[in-house]
């Protein structure tokens, strides 16, 4: 199905079907994501892109099929376990902790890499203090990485949408994922912000994190993605490089047919 050989897949989707009552949001999707790429997932509204991300991150249980990360089955695990195993995500509709500060949002995301519980924190045991310090420092580094360091102490809910989208990314990265799922990160961004976002996504991949990207902004997709998966009515419609997809007759028809 795929003409490119990228070596062993970091993520394998095998025959994923997701039904909501009578609606079939995903229908037998089989696909492999190789490591260290920017993998775009596109498709018209309602194609099942967000549902696919939910199935990968464990927020939804596929009706049938199997999700594997580095060869290990992960569907069926609770979402926090999947995050700890190295898959993080952002949300299409921003889901920040709005009354917490920007820094605290990122500090929260250090959760799967830290340990102190009620007793350690309540009694301020020595290990907890150094851990708290380390959480604060590494969270600040992730803010630096995305360029939000100046907003660290603002309440997350007060940021403009563009910065909230970037904060979502910083928060996902702070869990130290090997695969990060970005659901429409450019939605609501202006042109300059979108350019910077493209730059940021490239830097994420250079750090050795595989990126899966759902986006409607075709310029961005064509510019930065290594491979594209096209979904249409929950089915796998086409796969290929940006150049291949751009001229793919079925894809053109799917998008034209919609409008």
């Amino acid at each position: 199905m795929d003409s490119h050989d990228f070596g062993k897949a970091i993520l394998e989707l095998e025959d994923i079907t997701m039904q909501f009552g009578g609606i079939t949001a995903l229908q037998g999707v089989t696909y492999q994501v190789p490591p260290d790429v920017i993998q775009a997932v596109i498709g018209p509204n309602g194609a099942g892109k967000t549902t696919l991300f939910h199935c990968i991150s464990g927020l939804l249980q596929p009706t049938s099929g199997c999700v594997r990360m580095n060869g290990h089955r992960i569907n069926g695990l609770p979402p926090h376990r999947i995050t700890a195993l190295g898959i993080a995500r952002t949300f299409q509709h921003v889901a920040l902790f709005k009354s917490m500060t920007v820094l605290e949002n990122v500090m929260l995301a250090r959760h799967p890499r830290t340990h102190s519980g009620f007793l350690a924190t309540g009694f301020r045991l020595p290990g907890m203090r150094s851990e708290e310090k380390q959480i604060r420092e590494s969270a600040a580094c992730f803010l630096d990485f995305v360029g939000l360091e100046d907003d660290a102490h603002l309440e997350a809910g007060t940021l403009p949408l563009g910065k909230q989208k970037i904060l979502e990314i910083a928060r996902a990265l702070a869990t130290e994922p090997r695969l990060v799922l970005l659901d429409e990160p450019a939605g609501g961004l202006n042109m300059r912000e979108t350019e910077e976002l493209g730059e940021l996504i490239r830097r994420i991949r250079e750090k050795g994190t595989t990126v899966m990207l759902v986006e409607h902004d075709m310029n961005l997709i064509m510019e930065i993605s290594d491979r594209i998966l096209v979904l249409h009515y929950g089915r796998h419609l086409a796969t290929g490089t940006p150049v291949e997809i751009k001229d793919h007759p079925a894809v053109i028809e799917a998008y034209l047919g919609e409008g």
């Binding site: 991150s57 927020l59 609770p78 979402p79 926090h80 995050t83 700890a84 993080a88 995500r89 949300f91 889901a95 920040l96 902790f97 929260l108 995301a109 959760h111 799967p112 890499r113 928060r171 996902a172 869990t175």
Partner: peptide
């Protein structure tokens, strides 16, 4: 949901 997705 976001808390769970961030590993909590």
């Amino acid at each position: 949901t976001a808390a769970e997705a961030m590993g909590v």
